[in-house]
Design a protein around this nucleic acid. Structure first.
Length: 668
DNA sequence: GGAACTTTCAATTAC
DNA sequence: TGAAAGTTCC
């Protein structure tokens, strides 16, 4: 493998901790994969002893593929996962240490927010309108998540609370944590928090895990939060056998507790830390790289670095200004089709990135109409669909009868005459005996709260669930039969009776889920583990790993795009309010948005197009939009701006000729 | 209680 | 613009 001297130094440094400061496109994934091969060949390690962690599923999958490509058969046994999946693995072996039973559930962000909404409702004692509750629960989600990521208990949070709001949040945090435990559930933050507590408190478990994790590699280290940092320390212990790779200019997760100064903390905690800088960019043409460098130079830095490239200037960066978001989507879609024909490269060479998920929608419709294969990541994904969440909730109730979140979701879907009144009564019974809702159906005092017919319906539901729970050894079969028995497909049809196509799509999503469960079940995974694994997945297509079609246009948020590279990149919505996002006010927030833009620009290898509009439809109504302030920070000599009034005539003509050529090409 | 209709409101980013 | 929640009537 071809490595430059710095990369080689990073790969060969086996003894003692190492920090690799790796600029965008400087080959850090290459270093990580080469280092894993080196550890296996020359470091005397078995593949099971090497662990690599990343932040997103997508990055983990990408790295895993490259490790397998590089290290072959042994590469499959190397553990490459997200932090959260590693945390899950640690909890799974010791659920009791976290106060959990083996079938425990994972609450996603939506589950957590609904739970907090209910707790806040109780806290406020009834009189609360829906909007206030929604706003308050969102705020609480953020505060509690930050506390968890900083490893604070509810008691510690209460002790540090200064404002009334903080005290309320601390009280709700305590209730929330109690309720999670009662539901035999964890949230995403707990997947880091519980392992840190466990490894901190139980010396034998710590020793066990430290013996297992003989070498740890951490990608995107600048995005670690307090809990993740502790986890790294606890797993590597005194030995300090680790390599972390990071770039402070690409720190984009401050909003979920990331502490880029963990780069500095590391050299304090590990005085023997070695540092290697990677500054040669192998990815981007210099017009792109110089634009990105100029942009990021407007930010303060923890470390000075100078990125350079030998790849030649390439095309100018294109800035394309359009009338509105419809024109923007039309334009990007048709350019992709044109370039696909003209450049004769696969669909997978093209990527479109944007700040927030909803921006993908207009483009998605056009790509569908033009029959362009595409892959979309993140929000609005498969697992956010109502029917998929319903089916998963049924599954959760089978695996974990204490899962109140799942129970509340499906107890009356389809209708079972178990409405708000009955559930309120059941909740009172559950509160008295400090149990979850479903076990409260067995309470001797159920009749004091619930009338005879409602009680019979509750008992019927409980028994019905128990019946299917008995079939769980074939989870996909049990779930399918159960949904059929419940008349769920008919319920979906009745929900969208004016749109038969929609009903069909919804049921086919359930079918997709069932197929994925069946595949994993046949592969030998146990039912509870399949469920938890699905909770951490962002899409289903990781399953059929040899069937993944690489020839798809990639639609990604800027966050999801980090760590990836593409020949031709479009960044949509380079406007004030979108990038930087309108909620970002302070200098630090704007600096993070600038890093986000920097991440976007540096994804491109050969060509980069930034699009912006003069007006944009938001919530139905049209609003004027303005170019992003970041545009003024790009050096003029590296871009051409199309759509400005003062654009020279000859450039317009040249462009018209080009698209005519492209059209001809397409027709051939 | 359920079907058909009207009104309202929403969208930062991820595990 | 499109889903979810509210409203009316049977």
């Amino acid at each position: 493998m071809d490595l430059n001297p710095q990369q080689l130094a990073a790969v060969r440094h086996l003894h003692g901790p190492l920090l690799v400061l790796a600029g965008a496109g400087s080959g850090k994934t290459r270093v990580i994969t080469a280092k894993i091969s080196h550890l296996l060949r020359n470091g005397g390690l078995e593949p099971e002893q090497v662990f690599a962690v990343t932040f997103t599923n997508r990055a983990a999958r990408e790295m895993s593929e490259r490790v397998i490509a590089d290290a072959g058969r042994a590469g499959r046994k190397v553990s490459v996962s997200t932090f959260h999946r590693l945390g899950l693995r640690i909890i799974r072996e010791d659920p009791a240490a976290a106060g959990l039973k083996p079938g425990f559930s994972i609450f996603n962000a939506g589950d957590a927010e609904s739970l907090l909404r209910e707790l806040l409702r109780m806290h406020w004692g009834g009189e609360a309108d829906a909007t206030a509750l929604r706003d308050a629960s969102r705020a609480a989600v953020g505060t509690i998540s930050n506390w968890k990521n900083a490893l604070l208990t509810p008691e510690q949070a209460a002790a540090t609370a200064r404002s009334t709001l903080d005290r309320t949040h601390a009280a709700v945090y305590r209730d929330y944590q109690n309720h999670l435990l009662m539901s035999n559930a964890v949230d995403f933050d707990d997947l880091l928090l519980h392992p840190v507590r466990l490894l901190h408190q139980a010396a034998d478990r710590r020793a066990l895990w430290q013996a297992r994790v003989r070498y740890l590699l951490v990608d995107e280290y600048q995005d670690t939060n307090g809990a993740q940092y502790e986890l790294i320390r606890l797993l590597t212990g005194e030995r300090g056998a680790f390599t972390v790779v990071g770039d402070d200019d690409q720190s984009i997760y401050a909003w979920r507790g990331a502490r880029p100064d963990n780069l500095v903390t590391l050299s304090r905690d590990f005085p023997e830390l070695a540092v290697v800088k990677l500054e040669q960019n192998y990815r981007s043409r210099s017009n792109i790289l110089k634009s990105a460098n100029a942009l990021i130079s407007h930010n303060p830095h923890l470390f000075e670095k100078r990125l350079w490239s030998e790849r030649g200037p390439g095309d100018l960066v294109r800035i394309v200004e359009l009338d509105d978001d419809d024109a923007e989507a039309d334009r990007v879609a048709s350019e992709i089709v044109q370039q696909h024909a003209r450049r004769r490269c696969g669909w997978g060479e093209f990527a479109v990135v944007y700040r927030s998920n909803h921006q993908a929608r207009a483009l998605e419709l056009r790509l569908q109409a033009m029959k362009v294969p595409y892959r979309i990541s993140g929000g609005g994904s498969f697992f956010d669909r109502g029917e998929v969440r319903d089916a998963l909730a049924y599954y959760r109730l089978l695996v974990n009868p204490d899962d109140d979140g799942a129970l509340l979701r499906v107890i009356n879907v389809p209708r079972r005459q178990l409405g708000a009144a009955t559930l309120g009564a059941l909740q009172r019974v559950a509160n008295r005996r400090r149990s979850a809702l479903l076990p409260a159906v067995d309470a001797s005092d159920l009749a004091t709260e619930v009338g005879g017919s409602a009680a019979r319906r509750l008992i019927g539901f409980r028994d019905w669930l128990s019946h299917w729970r008995g079939q769980l050894q074939r989870p996909a079969v049990a779930l399918r039969d159960m949904l059929n028995d419940a008349g769920y497909e008919g319920w979906l049809a009745s929900l969208s009776k004016d749109d038969a196509e929609l009903a069909r799509i919804r049921w086919s999503n359930v079918e997709l889920l069932l197929a994925a469960i069946e595949r994993r079940s046949l592969a030998g995974d146990d039912p509870a583990e399949i469920l938890r694994s699905l909770a951490l997945d962002d899409s289903l297509d990781r399953d059929d790993d040899d069937e993944v079609d690489p020839e798809q246009v990639q639609l990604l948020t800027l966050h999801a795009a980090k760590g990836l590279e593409f020949a031709h990149v479009w960044l949509m919505g380079f406007e004030e309010g979108l990038l930087p996002h309108r909620n970002c006010i302070t200098d630090e927030q704007v600096a993070e948005e600038r890093r986000l833009a920097y991440v976007g620009l540096t994804r491109a290898m050969e060509s980069l197009t930034l699009t912006l509009t003069r007006k944009r439809r938001a919530r139905g109504e049209s609003r004027r939009s303005e170019p992003s302030r970041f545009l003024a920070e790009l050096p003029k000599e590296h871009y051409e701006w199309e759509g400005r009034e003062d654009e020279p005539e000859e450039r317009k003509e040249a462009r018209a000729r080009e698209s005519l050529d492209a059209l001809k090409n397409l027709l051939d």
